[in-house]
């Protein structure tokens, strides 16, 4: 008798747990953890393993685990973004589901700081423009038009909101861009780059070290 009632309690408890976990299981199945594909990123060569598929909005916590823990997915950062560059992991992303990202190849951040001011949690913290660290641009010198002597361009240098501190020509009379330490990784250079394979891309700052600096040290 007792064993039977215990069994009943156990089975009903298991059924209750299963029934309550059902919505989460459904949501998990529907949002598998997959990298976010973008229009131009798919076409990129696999040469650069450190090319990030997406950026976080400016002022985001550098530790992505801390960022996904802090972000509640309310979408306020996207709702105030003037260029509407902030998108959301809506259909895939696993534990990153509903968190914001920026695809600079599609539309880049203009560093207006509205998203940081509006974020209700500390996921996006208010940061001065020169202290923002979304990443750092990197130029593939084997593809960029001026670097391979396929004409003159300078689109990335002209658009950069950080000016000479972030990107400049290597020689004043050549249109060969070189990234400087002041780059905050907003990605406007990626958006305007006319090259189909995007020789300029935003990488994580830690994975990139400037050759000039190494020589100095």
């Amino acid at each position: 008798m007792k064993r039977r009632s215990l069994l009943r309690v156990l089975t009903s408890g298991a059924a209750l747990l299963g029934f309550s976990a059902l919505p989460y299981g459904v949501s998990r199945l529907l949002a598998p953890p997959a990298p976010q594909p973008t229009n131009r990123a798919i076409k990129l060569s696999a040469r650069h393993q450190d090319r990030r598929i997406f950026l976080r909005p400016p002022g985001a916590l550098k530790n992505d685990v801390a960022f996904t823990a802090a972000c509640i997915g309310c979408g306020l950062c996207g709702e105030v973004c003037p260029p509407r560059c902030i998108k959301f992991h809506a259909r895939s992303g696993g534990s990153q589901v509903n968190t914001p990202y920026i695809d600079p190849a599609e539309r880049a951040c203009t560093l207006c700081n509205k998203c940081m001011e509006v974020c209700p949690t500390e996921a996006l913290t208010v940061t001065k423009r020169q202290d923002i660290d979304m990443g750092i641009a990197r130029i593939d010198q084997t593809a960029c038009y001026p670097w391979v002597d396929k004409g003159i361009c300078g689109a990335c240098v002209s658009i950069c909101p950080q000016g000479k501190a972030a990107i400049a020509y290597k020689h004043w009379n050549q249109y060969r861009p070189v990234v400087k330490d002041g780059c905050v990784g907003c990605g406007l250079c990626v958006e305007v780059c006319p090259h189909p394979s995007l020789p300029i891309w935003i990488t994580e700052r830690k994975s990139y070290s400037l050759p000039e600096k190494k020589k100095l040290l």
Binding site: P23, Y24, V26, S27, C74, S95, V97, N98
Partner: peptide, 12 residues
């Protein structure tokens, strides 16, 4: 470590 409740909470 991410706000999973928001994925099943209808008003959100």
């Amino acid at each position: 470590g991410s706000v999973l409740i928001a994925t099943i909470y209808p008003p959100a």
